[in-house]
Design a protein around this nucleic acid. Structure first.
Length: 257
DNA sequence: AATTGGTTCAACCGCCCGAAA
DNA sequence: TTTTCGGGCGGTTGAACCAAT
């Protein structure tokens, strides 16, 4: 039998959307047949979970979400579906794509392995703290999230005419933190909306005060002068969103002395 | 205006696991 | 106990898009 592959049409989307809405999820092979879709059950499941599902959140990954992804990847590795559970509305596919297109790209530009100590330390002691600072400085601050902490992303879909753009501060699921065993991490700070106390954030506080001592922290992580120079001279990074001009200024303040 | 090279992301593939037959 | 099947997962691909030349 002929099974269609490739991009889904609006008509196929509509058929699957209506079918799942009236029959529920699961039994995807049977669903594909019953709905009259010339698609594999797998393809239907994927389309629903990654695109059509009412909880799928669209739009750019926020600073908070970036921070969560980095922190969770530290703890869980490439367990995309597990990471996705901490980011309501985001799919494992989306997170995996973010990691591959943004994070791995940074490693390539630094000419180091994404799993190397150098790169992991760069993330942990430079990139993540800067993200955290930017979150605090922006309107997306954690205090703002705390105000909205009881707001969970409402169901939405591109097929739903009432669909509105996601609220910037409504992605936090207050139920997640209570079910996670991950502790003392940024994910907890964000999920629980409490004041920052994690190791990473503590280190950031130290680094962020621009005191000379903090260079010790960084050099203790194994950076030599050349590596630091590469970091500082890494101006292409300005263009891809991970570092902004303020970041580069910050790095220069920290490392050029 | 056409071409080229890089980036993004939706979709597929292959493997694995657990439940049911 | 073995086989089959549905579903989940991580890795990979390729079309669409965009910016630079």
């Amino acid at each position: 039998m002929d099974v269609r592959k490739g991009p889904w049409t609006a008509e196929e989307d509509s058929i699957l959307f209506n079918y799942v809405n009236s029959h529920g999820e699961g039994r995807w092979n049977a669903a594909a047949c019953s709905a009259g879709l010339k698609r594999s059950g797998k393809s239907c499941r994927l389309r629903w979970l990654n695109y059509l599902g009412p909880s799928v959140k669209r739009g750019n990954i926020t600073l908070q979400e970036q921070l969560l992804i980095l922190d969770l990847h530290f703890q869980l590795g490439n367990r995309w579906s597990k990471i996705a559970r901490y980011l309501p509305g985001r799919t494992d596919n989306e997170i995996k794509n973010y990691w591959r297109t943004r994070v791995q790209k940074q490693a390539r530009q630094l000419k180091c392995d994404v799993n190397s100590k150098e790169f992991r330390d760069t993330m942990r002691y430079v990139w993540m703290p800067r993200l955290f600072e930017r979150i605090q400085a922006s309107n997306d601050s954690i205090s703002a999230i705390a105000i909205d902490s009881d707001v969970v992303q409402p169901p939405q879909s591109h097929l739903d005419p009432t669909h509105s753009s996601p609220s910037k501060s409504s992605w936090v699921n207050p139920h997640v933190a209570s079910t996670t065993s991950i502790s003392n991490s940024i994910s907890d700070q964000v999920q629980l909306q409490v004041s920052p106390v994690s190791d990473v954030v503590e280190n950031f506080k130290l680094i962020g005060t621009s005191e000379k001592d903090e260079m010790v922290i960084l050099t203790d992580q194994g950076y030599d002068g050349d590596t630091m120079n590469e970091l500082i001279g890494w101006e292409e990074s300005l263009e891809n969103g991970l570092w902004n001009e303020e970041d580069m200024w910050f790095l220069q303040q920290q490392f050029s002395g």
